[in-house]
């Protein structure tokens, strides 16, 4: 029985905080540099940005000792099964950062050779945009992941539905997903082709 199967109570609350603190401060990344983004990833590991401030300096060459996979670079169709295998060999709990636009969506390589988004293969926790992302962008993504680990729940506290609805509310409060300028003066455009295409939240 893992920690995930525990029911939540006041004892496990403190235990959960402790476990999350420990997980957050020792996220060891697996080496998965695929292209030019890997240079920025190495720069993050070097003295200039010194990722060991976050307890992450050990880039593990073995997936069994790694918690985080930073997919740095474009993933070709041939690399996809390898990436999936490395992900499967990593121990739970595990996280994935999709670094750069090529890993996130194929970027400017919209062709038959490149996987259009690594989230078709593995579940991605944080996307870092940029071509390539600067070390600070990647650090921002890592801090976002830390925040995600801190706010995430290990034990079962609430039913899934309520969590989803809560997330939706914050998303609506956060982004202006419905604020198009068409309704500036109450004037409704009548062009049939003019539609909103962004992904609904």
């Amino acid at each position: 029985m893992g920690l995930e199967d525990l029911q939540h109570n006041f004892l496990t609350g403190t235990l959960e905080d402790l476990v999350k603190w420990a997980r957050r401060n020792s996220v060891w990344p697996a080496t998965f540099g695929l292209a030019c983004c890997a240079i920025e990833m190495m720069s993050l590991g070097a003295a200039d940005y010194d990722i060991s401030r976050m307890g992450m300096e050990v880039f593990r060459a073995s997936p069994r000792q790694a918690d985080l996979m930073i997919v740095a670079g474009r993933v070709s169709q041939k690399m996809a099964p390898v990436l999936r295998q490395v992900y499967d060999q990593m121990m739970e709990p595990k996280w994935v950062i999709s670094m750069g636009v090529c890993a996130s969506s194929g970027g400017m390589f919209n062709n038959y050779a490149i996987v259009q988004g690594v989230d078709q293969i593995v579940p991605v926790d944080v996307y870092a945009p940029g071509c390539p992302p600067s070390p600070e962008t990647l650090l921002h993504a890592i801090l976002t992941l830390h925040e995600k680990i801190r706010n995430g729940e290990i034990t079962r506290r609430k039913p899934i539905e309520s969590r989803v609805s809560e997330g939706d509310q914050t998303a609506i409060a956060v982004g202006g997903s419905d604020g198009e300028s068409g309704d500036v003066a109450g004037w409704v455009p009548e062009v049939p082709g003019a539609v909103r295409v962004s992904t609904p939240r």
């Binding site: 996307y127 940029g130 921002h140 604020g179 909103r196």
Partner: peptide, 17 residues
Amino acid sequence: FEFSFTNRADAIYTKSE
């Protein structure tokens, strides 16, 4: 340049943003 997303919908900036 310091921004990152936790889902794909956040990455699509609309005109209001």
